[in-house]
């Protein structure tokens, strides 16, 4: 006996936004245009936070001093993503990773690249926590987080 199905309405919510970068993001991405990674140094606790912030989230002190951190650092943790969902900004396969850049006190989120991602077992043999990686830049700069193409293992 066939059961009558209830209606299912297929639709899409589409909402446009225009978001303000503000002073801090603008300064951070201006740094990207010059292939610099900038952080903010808290005048109270002295920690260097990357990306730049307008205030320290632990001391609540306003930060105006920008410091340049190294383009190199170590992998704190990483994950290989192979599945896809609607509207994903970075298409899989890709490796998202937390990287502690030399000179920074927080971990920076970006991609690990420059390696073959087709075989997950091989990837797991290659990418390790504690491994040193270095930023690889796009020749064309847009003042965007992806001006850094990815972080590549240092040989």
């Amino acid at each position: 006996m066939e059961k009558k199905e209830n209606y299912v309405i297929m639709d899409e919510v589409t909402i446009p936004y225009e978001l303000a970068y503000g002073r801090t993001w603008t300064q951070f991405f201006d740094g990207f245009r010059e292939e610099k990674i900038l952080g903010s140094k808290c005048p109270k606790c002295g920690r260097v936070l990357v990306p730049m912030r307008s205030f320290c989230p632990r001391c609540f002190e306003e930060i105006s001093q920008a410091v340049e951190v190294s383009q190199e650092g170590i992998i704190i943790s990483w994950a290989l993503t192979e599945y896809e969902y609607f509207g994903m900004p970075t298409k899989p396969p890709f490796i998202g990773a937390l990287i502690k850049l030399d000179g920074s006190d927080t971990n920076f989120l970006h991609l690990i690249g420059g390696i073959d991602l087709s075989n997950p077992e091989q990837v797991r043999k290659t990418v390790k926590n504690g491994m040193r990686v270095k930023a690889v830049w796009n020749p064309e700069k847009k003042g965007h987080i992806m001006d850094i193409k990815y972080f590549e293992p240092v040989k």
């Binding site: 209830n6 209606y7 299912v8 309405i9 297929m10 639709d11 899409e12 919510v13 589409t14 909402i15 446009p16 936004y17 225009e18 978001l19 303000a20 970068y21 503000g22 002073r23 993001w25 603008t26 609607f86 509207g87």
Partner: peptide
């Protein structure tokens, strides 16, 4: 001072279950 802006469109697909009453 005004800084630049980031334009973005959020699109989310949905399947609304009408249920027996609306059906």
């Amino acid at each position: 001072k005004e800084f630049s802006t980031f334009k973005k469109v959020i699109r989310l697909p949905h399947k609304y279950g009408a249920g027996p009453t609306f059906t």
